[in-house]
Simulated scan of single mutants.
Amino acid sequence: MTTPPPSGTETTHQESPYKGKTGLRRVWNALHYSLAGLSAAYRHEDAFRQEVLLAALLLPLALWLPVTGVGKAMMVASVLLVLVVELLNSAIEATVDRVSLENHRLAKRAKDIGSAAVLISLINVALVWGLVLLGAP
């Protein structure tokens, strides 16, 4: 029976050179990558721009409406969830397109599932806002 090599001495694949950063340098780099991702999504994704506009309208409204703190938090979270899901959907679409632009049933499935996730997050906004504003029992 052979023993495995000590941890970190041998890998079967090459890892990203950016993974070695630690501490504040890693946080600083992560912030810049995140801002670049938001910028890219805003520049290249129509749906993300539309949802940012929706968020720009709904977030101040949620804070202004006379509902409880928990209600405000739920309303804000539901809107931010749409943006998160749209970013993930856009990342999936970009990755699928990077692999191949040809029509393939698995590529279509991946894109359709991402789109369905966005739809469910939008339905969630309507339900949360409706329940908070109508004061569900």
Rank of each mutant, 00 (worst) to 15 (best):
T2S: 14
T3G: 05
P4F: 04
P5G: 00
G8L: 02
E10D: 09
T11S: 12
T12F: 11
T12P: 00
H13C: 12
Q14S: 09
E15S: 15
S16R: 02
Y18T: 08
K19L: 12
K19A: 15
K19N: 15
K21A: 11
K21C: 08
T22I: 09
G23L: 01
L24W: 10
R26P: 01
R26I: 00
N29R: 11
A30S: 14
L31V: 13
L31H: 09
H32G: 11
H32V: 06
S34E: 10
A36V: 01
G37V: 03
G37H: 01
L38S: 04
A40H: 13
Y42H: 15
Y42Q: 11
Y42D: 08
Y42E: 10
R43L: 14
R43G: 06
E45D: 15
A47F: 12
F48D: 03
R49N: 07
R49E: 13
Q50T: 04
Q50V: 05
V52A: 08
L53S: 14
L54I: 11
L54M: 15
A55T: 13
A56F: 00
L59E: 04
L61Y: 07
L61E: 05
L61G: 02
L61R: 06
A62H: 00
W64P: 01
P66Y: 00
V67W: 07
G69M: 03
V70R: 10
K72C: 04
K72S: 11
M74G: 15
V76K: 04
V76M: 03
L80Y: 06
L81R: 07
V82R: 02
L88D: 07
A91F: 06
A91E: 03
A91W: 09
E93C: 03
T95S: 12
T95G: 03
R98Q: 14
E102A: 05
N103F: 01
N103Y: 01
H104E: 04
R105N: 00
L106I: 05
A107I: 01
K108T: 14
A110C: 01
K111W: 02
K111E: 03
G114W: 04
S115L: 14
A116D: 09
A117M: 06
V118C: 06
L119R: 08
L119W: 10
I120Q: 04
S121Y: 03
S121F: 08
L122C: 08
I123W: 05
V128W: 01
G130Y: 08
L133C: 07
L133M: 04
L134Q: 14
L134V: 10
L134S: 15
G135W: 05
A136T: 07
A136C: 02
P137A: 10
